[in-house]
């Protein structure tokens, strides 16, 4: 198939950036989106041009490194990561626009690569449990009700790709923070720090210049891991509980 790509090119943080147009011929529908970008980069390299910088690692949908906005949708038209999106989702002759995640908290490093260090700092602020390490305890030493375990696991599948922020009209990271708050809050190990955790994580989120949540639901709709929107309500409950207890 033949496609036209409009790709965001930006030399560095201080560069203004612009959309550049490239034509690709003989693209296989079986290629993943990233393989298609690889083909583009080979072509650019042979033509002595700068290849398009983009993040990627595992290419099997579990690491969260890749992620671009394709035709206005985070990770493109399928509910999966960019690496698991295939060219068969597009038609011959399509023009595809590729942009980086857009948020003040995700500055563009180069082309399609953004710095998601703000996510790391939100986790650093409270997205962990403090426990003495050692050999793993017996799996049945601490019984957890099945629905709680399921919910914790569902929330824990967040790979921190940042699609929620990219898709949110307010560039809010609530779904990301809520996933971690829910994951740890559903388990006994997360209880001792529960009240302080949500406060610290929300403070850091605000500090990083993410926007506020207006419950529009774009985040959950594009999340490749299907993190449910109601985790945000759970975060709100925890935060209001903490404020009620004076943990602010």
């Amino acid at each position: 198939m033949n496609i036209t790509l409009r790709v965001w090119r930006q030399k560095g943080q201080d560069d203004e950036g612009r959309l550049a147009t490239y034509k690709l011929t003989d693209v296989s529908p079986d290629m993943s989106f990233l393989e298609m970008l690889d083909v583009l980069n080979e072509k650019l390299t042979l033509e002595d041009e700068d290849p398009v910088a983009f993040d990627h690692d595992c290419r099997e949908g579990i690491c969260g490194a890749c992620g671009v906005v394709i035709d206005g949708e985070a990770h493109g038209p399928e509910r999966t990561t960019t690496c698991q999106l295939h060219m068969r989702s597009f038609k011959d002759g399509d023009t595809i626009t590729v942009e980086p995640w857009r948020a003040q908290a995700f500055p563009v490093v180069k082309d399609l690569v953004v710095d998601r260090g703000s996510f790391d700092r939100i986790i650093q602020a409270g997205g962990f449990i403090s426990a003495p390490t050692g050999t793993a305890p017996d799996a049945h030493a601490n019984p957890i009700p099945k629905p709680d375990a399921d919910r914790a696991f569902d929330a824990a599948t967040c790979i921190g790709c940042g699609a929620c922020v990219a898709a949110c009209p307010n560039a809010s990271s609530m779904l990301f923070t809520a996933a971690k708050v829910t994951h740890l809050g559903m388990l006994p190990q997360g209880q001792p720090e529960r009240a302080a955790r949500v406060v610290k994580m929300i403070n850091q989120q605000d500090e990083e210049d993410f926007g506020g949540c207006s419950n529009i639901g774009e985040c959950a709709a594009v999340c490749p891991k299907g993190i449910p929107l109601d985790t945000i309500s759970q975060l709100n409950r925890d935060l209001l509980g903490s404020l009620g207890k004076g943990v602010g």
Binding site: R102, N170, G211, G212, I216
Partner: peptide, 25 residues
């Protein structure tokens, strides 16, 4: 206040060239 925060979180210069509503009403 929240409107101003949202504008700071994604300033005008950083808006997407192509926008698509997926879920929002």
């Amino acid at each position: 206040t929240l409107w101003a925060r949202a504008r700071r979180a994604r300033p005008a210069a950083q808006r997407y060239k192509v926008n698509k509503r997926v879920a929002r009403s």
